[in-house]
Design a protein around this nucleic acid. Structure first.
Lengths: 364, 364
DNA sequence: GCCATTTGCAAAACCGTTTTACTAAACTAG
DNA sequence: CTAGTTTAGTAAAACGGTTTTGCAAATGGC
């Protein structure tokens, strides 16, 4: 386990390059780091030798000397669980792509119990193994995250919020999402707009609901409590909720759900009840997952572009690492993707449809 | 982008620990690295100071000085694609868990075109950023992988084989999988055993077929060409193939597929044809995916334990990194998970069932 | 009781960079 | 023409560890 054969071949060092090019180590280092005080002639000479020798600077030495670290650790909940979910796959893609583009490296860490207990998340910084950390998910206890609010390690939350702790983060504009969906329906002429929300214990569900209520209020529509129900992000539960909604003495003419899977549940119920979308009822989903463009009718959906949000998180983090920005909260606009599941309400069909562009976005 | 505020707080160094404990740097280093020539008294004194100060050795300095690196890079094809696939999720879990257990770190890399073009996979070693590399998937061109066969960088293939290149790897015993499945059916009394295989262009499909043929031959059963068909790892294609098989003048009494999804295709077809499993036809799948325990009847399947294989890959790689093993190929045994979809053939039902344990494994 | 060996630790060298301090030469201003 | 300022580069000192070498004290054998 620890016995080592010493078969490591000696690498090419800056010293070797310097000798070969007939300059000092300093000069080679200056060339590598684009220091301006090097003549074009010398620079070219050095670069030529570097390329001939296939020299690559030793990252450990560089980090040690320059006190930098270009590695970012991504902390995730249970891995097995994670990767079944499109949400995480998209987030990871965004994070990776931006890290790659900025010439940083990505280190993966699982937020296990031990990870938290041993304060491993802090030790990574103390050992200078990473320059910054991203957190994606919600497994670490609040009290551990508090360490980051206190300490001044570069740390960014990916699209999540923790009550009472002010941490740098980039989050989707869920409030705007609720508002933009409601506004679109109101503009079409709907007045009885139901909202089947995710679990009210979640930040995103509450925020969406807030936006929805605000849009109604702004339009002078007093809201009907019986039109707001909890669907728990579940397709089947939403199917049942929809049946109840449509059995009201005065059923809604439009439904807005927290995500697309729930919207599929609405479609299930309406199909069973032979209610047509969008002729009889308009429908808006959320998240704009891939399948949403393929349903009949294709689903209008409020997009939370997690890939872009993830990239922005990395940019914010790198700004923090490199010390040229203050910790901050960035809110990423939601976008309404208008497809076929929304239309003017039945009773208004005679009215002229207003001009509506096919993409609307919050916080423009 | 490059301008930095110098707000990095000075960390605690080995020098500080040494001073505080009243010993030399050497002694502290010896304590950290379990060098035996330190008295118990001194060791305890030093450990106490380390813990009080919360000292964590600087990994960059350590790697630079000791010429080691405890980071392993996992190279993957397209990330988005990866995380929707259970196979990759399982492999990643195994890789992560073993790396964590060995106190190494996991760096993620995407096998992009640029990654190959710039020989980035080699540069990671030259820059001393990683100690070893794992490759999971099949996107890199053979010619790039050749560099690893030539160079002596610690490199291990995770459950894959490339023709003509001898690279260290751990692979599932696909040949044994084919054999163990066929043998189980033969022992039950089957003689007409069909095999619906994956694409013949793949290593795993060919190997499984080879094992199947060998088992038949060993049992003195001459095989019928018409019972061996290609199902291309596809459920629908396998459904059609099954219908053809069952329409033969002398249909098989048992079917063995390359994986479980294909076995589901067989179930689809047999259900349509009102053929009962296992009463009329016995069925064995492959890979033992989660859903296989839930079908009716529950599916007998040959398991290729990718999680375990992945862990073994990491162990092999670390052995190579630490120089106490030779590059080698390890073959991981397949295991037959016997559930409800296999039974003695209809015409033999009067015979006594032989004793069969519920788990069989190749290469015992 | 004496010499040889082992034990326990420290001093110094080294790992491969960046950074700081300095200098000679070239240029500029007056 | 001279003093001051750039320019282009170098030598040496960090960075924070590990490893090698050295040495005094303790131990062991006879």
């Amino acid at each position: 386990m620890t016995k080592k054969k010493n078969n490591k071949r000696q690498g090419i060092t800056i010293e070797r390059v310097a000798a070969e090019a007939g300059v000092s180590k300093t000069t080679v280092s200056f060339v590598l780091n684009n220091n301006s005080s090097i003549s074009e002639k010398t620079r070219e000479k050095v670069l030529k030798v570097i390329s001939e020798l296939g020299y690559q600077p030793n990252t450990n030495a560089r980090n040690l000397s320059a006190k930098t670290n270009q590695t970012i650790s991504l902390v995730l909940p249970e891995l097995g669980h994670v990767f079944e979910d499109q949400y995480f796959a998209r987030a990871l893609s965004g994070i990776y792509d931006e890290i790659e583009a900025e010439d940083y490296r990505l280190m993966l860490k699982k937020a296990s119990y031990e990870f938290a207990l041993n304060k491993e998340y802090i030790n990574l910084f103390l050992r200078k193994e990473i320059g910054g950390m991203l957190y994606l998910g919600s497994t670490l206890e609040d009290k551990y995250l508090k360490d980051f609010a206190d300490g001044d390690f570069p740390f960014v939350l990916v699209n999540s919020t923790l009550e009472g702790i002010e941490l740098p983060r980039v989050i989707a504009d869920y409030r705007g999402a609720g508002a933009i969906a409601a506004r679109h329906l109101i503009e079409l002429g709907h007045r009885r707009i139901a909202h089947i929300s995710g679990s009210w214990s979640t930040f995103s569900a509450r925020e969406r609901q807030f936006g929805y209520l605000k849009a109604l209020a702004d339009a002078g529509i007093s809201f009907d409590e019986s039109l707001i129900v909890e669907g728990h992000f579940d397709r089947e539960e939403t199917r049942r909720a929809t049946k109840n909604l449509m059995s009201l003495s005065e059923p809604p003419t439009a439904i807005f759900t927290s995500n697309d899977v729930m919207a599929f549940g609405v479609l299930d119920a309406l199909k069973e009840m032979s209610i047509s979308v969008p002729k009889d009822v308009s429908l808006i989903g959320g998240d704009n997952i891939e399948a949403s463009g393929l349903t009949v009718p294709a689903l209008t959906s409020v997009e939370q572009p997690i890939y872009e949000i993830a990239r922005e998180c990395v940019r914010l983090l790198i700004d923090l690492i490199e010390g040229n920005d203050e910790p901050k909260v960035r809110i990423w606009p939601s976008k309404l993707i208008i497809r076929e599941s929304t239309a003017v309400p039945h009773e208004n069909k005679i009215e002229k449809r207003r001009n509506i562009s096919t993409e609307l976005s919050t916080r423009k």
